[in-house]
Design a protein around this nucleic acid. Structure first.
Lengths: 141, 141
DNA sequence: AAAACTGATACTATATTAGTATCAATTAAA
DNA sequence: TTTAATTGATACTAATATAGTATCAGTTTT
């Protein structure tokens, strides 16, 4: 069971790079090479993040991507939702009002609870927090 | 993001059926029809559960599957591990001693923590507990 | 005008998940 | 003792999700 896919993993790395240089534009190319992310793949992720207003872009030479948002307001939960769909422990059927299968109804209760736990744990992890951890780690020998 | 796949979902339902009739053999066919599980699919799941000693089987007419274990000792975590692989928030690379990418190292810490949380939450959910919930629900109007 | 960029989108490859089919071996019962 | 109901093992197909590549048009700086 894999909780974070490459999409999300790459997106986090890209956002950390952008957060570290907040206010200036970084090109997709530089982010890709410096963070070991396939260039074309990254471009799609960046565009997706623009659509979700996590970052902004500038066209042309000297263009690139920039973070405007507060990095503490970008959570891993959000990124999972964007790139892997809403956290759901099991299928939509569990969410239906009436569910034919009694066993499912019982599971449903536990499932909803765990969904909440998972979601709230990932919500604690923001880009801002990761960046601070990262900078803290850099100082150590 | 889907946490439980059909495998696991079906396995849970099958185990609930077996736990409810603990001590007697139920055929794959009856479990399948009564719980809305594709027959051949279920058979593979049952065999997998035999290999993991969650249940036992008897061949031939009047044969089937039976639960011997204490239902409280079968956790959803175990089932996830069997059918979806060990819970891991991100890829193996995060687990390597030395990881080239500093950003990953930072993520790694959070990831490990969340992994623990997810795992321990699912460990609280046993087949026994689900069965009691189920029986409780059946009594209500 | 050229070069360095993004926007949009189409395409391919691989892996995972879901489901089906088949045949041999075993056992209870007619 | 034959038949029918069953599991064991395994091979196969289909659908979906994930990962990665390629292309071309438009924008902006130099």
């Amino acid at each position: 069971m894999k909780v974070l896919t490459k999409n999300t993993d790459y997106a986090i790395r890209a956002l950390l790079a952008l957060a570290a240089k907040k206010g200036s534009f970084l090109s997709a190319k530089s982010i890709a090479t410096e963070n070991d992310i396939p260039y074309q793949f990254l471009r799609r992720l960046l565009q997706e993040m623009i659509r979700h207003d996590l970052i902004v872009s500038k066209d042309g030479v000297q263009g690139g991507f920039m973070m405007e948002k507060d990095p503490d307001e970008i959570t891993v939960t959000q990124l999972i939702e964007i790139f892997q769909g809403k956290v759901q422990v099991s299928e939509c059927m569990f969410r239906k009002q009436i569910c034919g299968n009694r066993a499912r109804c019982v599971l449903r209760h536990e499932i909803m609870r765990i969904e909440q736990v998972v979601q709230s744990e990932f919500e604690k992890v923001t880009i801002g927090k990761l960046l601070r951890d990262l900078e803290g780690a850099a100082l150590k020998p």
